[in-house]
């Protein structure tokens, strides 16, 4: 029996918004440590890794490991039926072929339940080694979303260069070129607005804007975003999800012909 109860169903609504454009379907792997999801977009250029820890739920029970193949468009439809302040419970029997979502309004006057069929998805997992990245940049998530949006007007690719002076985002194309430089902020009173850069050695990598703009759909989940870069390996874009977990996007770089 699997049962997970979350007082803030808005977290799940935002998680779905953060992945539904990149992925059509995904397997939610449930165990006693929580819910994990790893999936690549259809082109295998990017990968999403979601982790929701069991201790972040108000109630969590998972008697046996359960892999739920989910069509994300269907789950999005169900999550749209939930109010932001509803309490959400996900329930599934062991080796179930369906999962039930229950939503309770805050005053308990409205109780809804939706049963969704599960899919048989083949499990393909990539092993992502713990990596000590050359550059780790933390910046306001809204700022990063704005940069990706603005630069994607100039070209299909963004060059992200990180030196000890700061981080530079560049794009060039038919209409011209654009550069956005962010310096490390000095002492800011609100840490959500800080830009911090830990650089072991400078890195400059090229990425497709399209995917970065998919990743920034996760912006409502966290006021800050963390970019981790090393030469010749995928970029990691991480958004914390409250106290319950995180969503990490990996993006393969574009390399010189």
């Amino acid at each position: 029996m699997f049962e997970a109860r979350l007082v803030q169903s808005s977290i799940f609504k935002k998680v779905l918004e953060a992945i539904k454009e990149l992925l059509n379907e995904a397997t939610f792997d449930c165990s006693d440590s929580g819910i994990q999801l790893q999936a690549m977009d259809s082109s295998h250029v990017s990968l999403v890794s979601l982790n929701l820890r069991s201790d972040g739920f108000d109630q969590y029970r998972c008697d046996r490991n359960l892999s739920m193949g989910i069509n994300l468009a269907s789950m999005t439809k169900i999550m749209k039926c939930a109010g932001n302040d509803d309490i959400m419970t996900m329930k599934a029997q062991d080796n179930a072929d369906s999962v039930t979502f229950m939503f309770e309004s805050p005053n308990q006057e409205k109780m809804s339940d939706y049963e969704m069929k599960l899919m048989n998805l083949d499990q393909e997992h990539l092993g992502i080694p713990e990596t000590d990245y050359s550059c780790v940049i933390k910046l306001p998530s809204a700022e990063f979303a704005r940069i990706c949006r603005d630069l994607s007007q100039f070209g299909e690719s963004v060059v992200i260069s990180c030196t000890k002076e700061g981080v530079k985002f560049s794009a060039a194309g038919d209409i011209g070129s654009a550069n956005i430089k962010l310096a490390q902020t000095a002492n800011v009173d609100k840490e959500d607005e800080a830009v911090s850069i830990e650089m072991q050695e400078k890195v400059s990598l090229t990425f497709a804007c399209r995917y970065l703009n998919y990743f920034t759909k996760a912006t409502p989940l966290s006021p800050q975003v963390c970019l981790s870069m090393s030469a010749e390996v995928p970029l990691v874009v991480e958004y914390k999800i409250g106290e319950i977990g995180h969503i990490r996007y990996y993006l393969a770089p574009k390399i010189e012909e």
């Binding site: 690549m40 082109s43 295998h44 250029v45 990017s46 990968l47 393909e124 997992h125 990539l126 092993g127 992502i128 080694p129 690719s157 090229t206 497709a208 390996v233 995928p234 990996y250 393969a252 770089p253 574009k254 390399i255 010189e256 012909e257």
Partner: peptide
């Protein structure tokens, strides 16, 4: 222009 790589170039299936 640049060549887009894919995940399998960097990570192994487990």
């Amino acid at each position: 222009d640049h060549l887009q790589t894919v995940m399998e170039k960097f990570y192994e299936y487990v």
